[in-house]
Amino acid sequence: MAESIMTPSRKTSPASAPRYSGWIGRLAGNPIYAGTIGRIANSRAVRLTILLGVPLVWIAALHIGPIYQMLRISLLENYPAAADGQNAYTLSNYRLFFEEPLYFIPFIRTLIFAAVVTLCTLLIVYPVAYYVAKVVKPKNRVRALLLLLIPFWAGELIRTFSVIMLLANRGAVNVLLREIGLIDRPIPMLYTYFSLSFGVVYLIALYMLLPLYSAIEKIPPQLIHAADDLGAGPWQRFRRVILPLSRDGIVSGCSLVYLTTVGVFAAPLLLGGPETVIFPEVIATLFHGSNDKWPEGAAFSIIMLVVSLSTVGLFMKIVGGRSVRLM
């Protein structure tokens, strides 16, 4: 309302162009600008079209498009189409998944592996997040957090490679154990479930740390003190006050870790062995090499996507977090 009283000139006489300083003034005063961008910017309909156009096209084409294409190809008999051009829609790619234990078992293995890794990460990271958020003095908090963030600026591959330095047969752990005489022969740790989960936890701990930290930091200390005054011991304070109030952080952290672990790819290639073949590797082989089977690979990817997202959805429903924050 105030707008219409104070600025009648803007609508009635656009010719009395305002004066700006610097380059923007020269731009705004330029007749070419006034005729093109200036005119577009002053028309609400055109403005809205431009504002909406690019984002909607981008999202439709590149956020939904690839998944739609994956779904479409997963229902095709052949891709690329067979020589005679016939290409029927079929569900046989999905049926194959349930009939062939070679595919089915790594899939189950992946789900269990991801669940175990998520639980371990939660148990390891929760006390650390609690320590930084509540025990460390506020002025040291940023420094305590930064110390934990440093490793995550190293890339996925470099961190995976670093784990090899630690766990290899002539790696630090085995050499140290032999030096102090505990073992004669190196313990084979690399290419096992141990090295794989060690590496994956190492890769993803940050996704658990940040949501947990921000949730725990928000708990008012008065509540903890009140529980203390009312006679609750440390365990009871944790169980009845801190844990329920950090639920949002637990849900976001676990969801992020689970989804990342299900799709982890470099770590199993470098740290896993023949006994630890998990589903991502199975899918990848269907897209690479000479006898690639794209429809099967697409079908398996769809199965994995649906199952992992619905697992997380179910988990959120049961535990009851309000929303997953991505950062």
Binding site: Q69, M70, L259, T260, F287, S301, L305
Partner: peptide, 18 residues
């Protein structure tokens, strides 16, 4: 936000198909 919740490998494969 969809590409951020789709597991990385699935994202890569769907782009490869696309």
């Amino acid at each position: 936000c969809l590409p951020a919740v789709v597991p990385g490998l699935i994202n890569a494969i769907s782009m490869r198909i696309f």
